[in-house]
Simulated assay, not measured.
Amino acid sequence: MRVMLMAGLLAVAGVANAGTPLPDGPHVVTSGEGKVSVAPDMVTLHVSVTKRNPIAANAKQEADQAVNRFLEALAKQGVENADITASGLDLSEDTERADSGRRVSNGYTAERSIEVKLRALDRFNAVLDAALTAGINGFGNPTFESSRKTELMAQARALAAQDAQRKAEDLARGFSAHAGRIYSIDSVGSSTGERYLGRGELGTVTVTRSKTAPARYLQPQIEYRERVQAVFDLQR
């Protein structure tokens, strides 16, 4: 009877991940999920500058000058060097073949990428304006974040553990048993995502170069998710 009870609960709860230790006696395996949503308080900007010139050194110099102007502007905004990444350079020649088969050069392209972490969203507008003024001409999607990520992931993990235990107790109760001592716990995985709320709930960041032409950036809620798998002894 005890063997049948264990088999029935495992069929409902699912088989443990490979490598997860299982007890010899009756047990139940469950997985739990936890999620915490918050408004972001930081943003990472992904920008780049691309310059073309018939001379490779000139293309690089023009890109470097735009980056240097932007870095100077960031310093004035109080952005720390530790929050800036601007070390990469991609320099390439644009070539083609003429009808005669002769190789023809159309000049050189120099591209540099910059990532900037802003720890205060109220600087968003000023930094984007500074990038445009400096000659930055490539803008990727901003990545919104929370400075409390470690704390929030811990909260999501605790919720996942509670969810796994609740499921184990519900399953055991259906077979006139109850979940006993915890035998093993595994972290199945964690993730971070963005979620846009409904109208009226959506936060925005307004970006403008003039008072007559504002632009709105949608500010999502950040979701921190955690999944765990747990094995409990069964007791009758």
Rank of each mutant, 00 (worst) to 15 (best):
E226T: 09
M153H: 05
M4L: 15
A16S: 07
E226P: 06
R103N: 09
A230H: 00
S31E: 14
E115F: 06
Y196K: 04
A213R: 13
R225N: 13
R195P: 02
R2F: 09
G14H: 12
A154V: 08
A213H: 15
S147W: 08
L171C: 08
Y217G: 03
E111I: 14
A75W: 08
L121I: 13
S92T: 12
Y196F: 14
S190L: 07
E115C: 01
V205P: 00
I222K: 00
G193D: 07
Q221V: 07
G34H: 05
S187Q: 10
Y183A: 05
A75N: 06
N137A: 01
N125W: 03
Q235S: 05
P214A: 11
E201V: 10
T85E: 15
N58K: 11
E145K: 13
L71M: 11
A156E: 02
R173N: 07
A56G: 02
A130T: 06
A179L: 04
G135I: 02
T192E: 14
A75I: 05
P26N: 02
G88T: 14
L89W: 04
T50G: 08
L152H: 07
K149L: 11
V15M: 14
G25H: 03
N17P: 10
A215R: 11
A177C: 14
D41M: 09
A13M: 04
N58A: 10
S37P: 12
V205N: 08
P26V: 03
G203D: 01
G34S: 09
K76S: 11
P54R: 07
D99Q: 15
L128K: 10
M42S: 12
G34I: 06
D129I: 14
N137Q: 09
Q155L: 15
V36N: 00
V104Q: 12
N68M: 08
R102P: 00
T192M: 13
Q221E: 15
V79L: 07
D24E: 15
Q162K: 11
L202Q: 14
P23K: 00
Q155C: 05
Y224L: 15
T109C: 01
E226Q: 13
A131F: 06
F139Y: 14
I55F: 15
K117S: 08
E151Q: 12
K167D: 03
D90A: 10
V3F: 15
L9T: 00
T109R: 10
K35W: 02
A177S: 14
Q65W: 08
V205G: 10
N58C: 00
L128F: 06
I84N: 02
H46Q: 09
T133L: 13
L171D: 05
R236H: 07
A98Y: 07
A131E: 01
I222S: 08
Q221W: 06
I84H: 10
R225V: 11
A56I: 06
R102M: 12
R2P: 00
S92I: 11
R112A: 06
D94G: 09
E201I: 09
A161V: 00
L121H: 09
K211W: 13
H27R: 05
V79S: 03
F232E: 00
S187F: 05
Q229T: 01
T44W: 03
P214G: 08
E151M: 06
G193F: 12
N68L: 10
S48V: 04
V116N: 04
A18C: 01
Q162A: 14
